[in-house]
Nucleic acid binder design. Structure first.
Lengths: 211, 211
DNA sequence: AGATGTTTCAAACATACGTTTAAAACACAA
DNA sequence: TTGTGTTTTAAACGTATGTTTGAAACATCT
């Protein structure tokens, strides 16, 4: 097995298991067993469990943030001096996320669950890593959101952005169990793209609500 | 030290530590050290770590759900046959939560963080416990929400309720770091009650958004 | 083919965990 | 005070974890 195979097998297994059980609840033995590699492979290829956790995030986040940065440049160029339209701006995020690994929308749910864990679970090293690594693109995006909502005070916008973030992360991270519930309660099935298309008008309405 | 003192000392320490680090990341030795009691006290008084986790939730949730059930009875009685008004209905939740342990709004943040953990972190036993124990009151509340939003389809309402839940849990569970960010970015301080008063119009607008 | 650097492997290491135990300390009624 | 049931204590138990090790297997190049 070539080196790359082992590394990606570990990353795949870790990604799934972390999202299912959390970081502390997933042992290296769980990961290496599912990946079909030797236990020592993690420490050999990544150095430590912490480094593996960061690598799992980097594998998704680096292509995503690069893609988003380029999309933002295009959006800004097409915009000229007009005020950006909120709905299309918000749609940019799930659109690039789904485009980042096309053909596998399930992965977005997995990654959202990981993102939720990164916030709720301790893992101080992870928050620090994410902040230093990916905050530039996020700031760019926020600047456009500010331009799209000139009627909001900075304070209102600040809070509502985080309300939106919460609704998104929470819903998409639990999208599997939620769609199961929806199917049981309503008899209607749904996938992550349909949930996103329900989510965006909700978010836009909340963000534009009268104070 | 009387029995009750040891038990509540453990519950207090566990509540804080769980909310700070998560369940798996908090050891019984952490808890008993902070509580100033012997390590074996947890297994003596609660039986196991799992049972302690459930007890932490029960201490908050049992008074809360009883209070809420009574508030819902009052709300329904005052309503007669009118259609319930959405904003006042939504306000009922934070109002009773803040009333449950009055004088300590910080505790609501702690508990929201725990609730978020219960969802995101594995802890299957916890989800099962919460469901069997407190689902009745929740169903009552949901019925009123349905009456307050007759224009929504069951499917739209289902998803938007969960969007609201996500925004609430996520924001209130991170209320400490968020208020710190708000103070740093905007120079304005905020407490949990002011966040809640910002949150409810956001939620109501999202729930009533055109489909 | 032989030498060299890389990757895998089974085994062991040290440490931390949840839990159990048996004795000591305590509370309190007879 | 003695006796009884409860609570606390220090120590140990068994298990699981992340990490390290040194030899074996492998790949790559001259």
């Amino acid at each position: 097995m070539a080196q790359k195979d082992t590394v990606t097998a570990i990353l795949n297994a870790a990604e799934e298991l972390f999202s299912e059980r959390g970081f502390a609840e997933t042992s290296l033995r769980n990961i290496t067993t599912r990946a079909g590699v030797n236990l020592a492979a993690v420490n050999y290829h990544f150095g430590s469990k912490k480094a593996l956790i960061q690598a799992v995030f980097a594998r998704f986040l680096t292509p995503f943030s690069e893609q988003l940065a380029s999309e933002l440049r295009g959006y800004r160029a097409q915009l000229q001096d007009e005020v950006p339209e909120l709905n299309s701006l918000l749609m940019l995020l799930p659109a690039t996320a789904l485009r980042t690994d096309k053909g596998n929308p399930r992965r977005l749910g997995i990654f959202m669950r990981l993102l939720g864990l990164a916030y709720t679970q301790g893992q101080g090293h992870l928050r620090k890593y994410l902040q230093t690594e990916y905050s530039a693109v996020f700031r760019d995006f926020m600047q456009l959101v500010s331009a799209a909502t000139p009627n909001l005070s900075n304070e209102d916008r600040f809070w509502r952005i985080h309300f939106m973030l919460g609704a998104t992360v929470f819903t998409l991270s639990g999208v599997d169990s939620l769609t199961a519930m929806a199917e049981h309660d309503l008899g209607k099935s749904a996938d992550i793209t349909s949930v996103v298309s329900q989510l965006t008008p909700f978010l836009a309405a909340g963000l534009n609500a009268p104070p």
